[in-house]
Design a protein around this nucleic acid. Structure first.
Lengths: 200, 200
DNA sequence: CTACTTATCGAGCATTGCTCAATAGTGACG
DNA sequence: CGTCACTATTGAGCAATGCTCGATAAGTAG
C-alpha cells in the first residue's frame, strides 16, 4: 500500500536513494493513505513520523514539507477517516430500520477502523472536535430519517447521545458477539424511539 | 499542591538543591496526587515526566525509581481517578431516581475530572482497560439499583451502553447547558427503563 | 543549453522516556 | 557518640522523536 506502482518502486530502488519526485497532490494522497491504513492497526498517537516516512520511502523532512506539523498531518488523516465513515454509513433507505441496519452492517464489516477513529477522540482537543463534527453529521442523518425538521437543542443532544449508546452496543456486539443481530437492532430502534418520544 | 508544607519547602530551598528525603509511601501519594491534578487540566498523554518531576521538585530519575515506566505511573493515576469517581457516584438511595440524581450531581460538580478520565480512554489499551473496569463497576451499581440479580450478557451490555448515553448527555448538559436538570433526568431514566424493558 | 522552481534530503537541535553509577540522608546497632 | 548498612535522591548520558534549515537535484520554461 505504500507504493501501488511496482514499476516506480523498482526505478526508485535502482536509481539511488532519493525518492522519485512526485506531484504534491499525489504525495499528500499517498501520505494520508498511509496514515489511514496505520490507523486501523494502532492508536493515533502511536503513529510516528518516522514510521510514515519509512512506509512512504521518503525522509522525515519531506513530510514536514507537506504538513507543517505532526498535528496537521494527524488532523488530515482523521478528517479523511471521518469522511470515509460518513460515506459508508450514508442512509440508503429512509426509515429508521434501514438506517440502523445500515449502521450495523457497517460496524460488522469495519469495526476496526471505526474503533480506531473514535478511540482517537480523546487524544487531543482538535481530534475531539473532528469527532464531534462527524457525530453531528450522523445526528443529522438520524434526524432526517426521523422526519424531524427543526429539532430543539435537547432533542439534538439526546439523539447525539443515543449515537454513543449505539456505538457502544454495536461495537460490543461486533467484538464479543453479545446478542444476535436482531436483538441489537431491536435494542437500538427501541431506545431511539423512547428517546425521541420522551424529549418534547 | 506540589508541597503542602511551606516549612519543608523553605528548608529544601535553603539547604541546597537535593529534595528532602521522604518515605516511599508519601512520595508515591504526592506524585499520584500531582498526576490527578494535572489530569484535570490536560489530556493524559500531555503530562510529561518532566512536568510531574518539576511540580514535585524532584529529579526525573526519582520518578522512575517509584514507577518503572511512564505507563505504570499513568496507570496508577488513572486507577486513582477511577476509584475517586466510583466513590463519588456511590449510590446513596436505592432507586434509579436516586442513582441518576446522584450521577447528575456528580457530573455537575466534577465534570472536568470526569471528562479528563474518560477522554483518556483512547490513549492506549491499558487505559481503556481501566476505563472498562470502571464502567463495569458502574454497570453493577445500576443493575443492583434495578433489582436485577442475574442479568444476561445482553442486558449487561445494554446497561453498559446506556452509561455511554448517560455520560454523553450529562456532559452536554453540564458543559453547554442543554436542557434543564429535570429534563436530562427524565431522559436518562426513561431511556434506561426502555432499555431494560426491551432486553428480555 | 540555461535558468528557475521546488520536491527532496541530510545534518543537527530540543524534548522526552529511560538507565545507571554515584551521592548523601536516615535509622540501627554497638 | 561513632560507624555502618540501607535506600532515597541525583546527574550524566543514551535513544527515539518532533521539527528546522540550508543544500541538492529533478523536472520545466525559455
Amino acid at each position: 500500500m505504500a507504493d501501488a506502482d511496482p514499476a516506480r518502486a523498482r526505478q526508485r530502488q535502482a536509481s539511488g536513494r532519493r525518492s522519485a519526485r512526485q506531484s504534491p497532490a499525489e504525495r499528500r494522497k499517498q501520505l494520508i493513505g498511509i496514515g489511514l491504513e496505520m490507523l486501523t492497526t494502532r492508536p493515533l498517537h502511536q503513529i510516528t513520523i518516522d514510521d510514515v516516512a519509512a512506509e512512504a520511502a521518503i525522509s522525515r523532512s519531506l513530510l514536514f514539507h507537506y504538513f507543517p506539523t505532526k498535528r496537521d498531518y494527524y488532523a488530515e488523516v482523521v478528517r479523511a477517516a471521518s469522511r470515509r465513515l460518513l460515506r459508508a454509513t450514508r442512509v440508503e433507505g429512509e426509515t429508521i430500520d434501514d438506517l440502523v441496519a445500515g449502521f450495523l452492517s457497517f460496524i460488522e464489516r469495519r469495526h476496526e477502523p471505526y474503533i480506531a477513529l473514535f478511540r482517537s477522540a480523546g487524544t487531543d482537543d482538535w481530534v475531539h472536535e473532528i469527532f464531534r463534527d462527524t457525530r453531528a453529521a450522523l445526528t443529522d442523518q438520524v434526524l432526517t430519517a426521523l422526519d424531524i425538521d427543526a429539532p430543539s437543542e435537547l432533542v439534538r443532544a439526546a439523539v447525539g447521545a443515543w449515537l454513543a449508546y449505539a456505538e457502544e452496543l454495536a461495537l460490543e456486539w461486533a467484538q464479543h458477539g453479545t446478542g444476535t443481530r436482531d436483538e441489537i437492532h431491536a435494542l437500538l430502534t427501541g431506545a431511539l424511539g423512547c428517546v425521541v418520544r420522551s424529549a418534547p
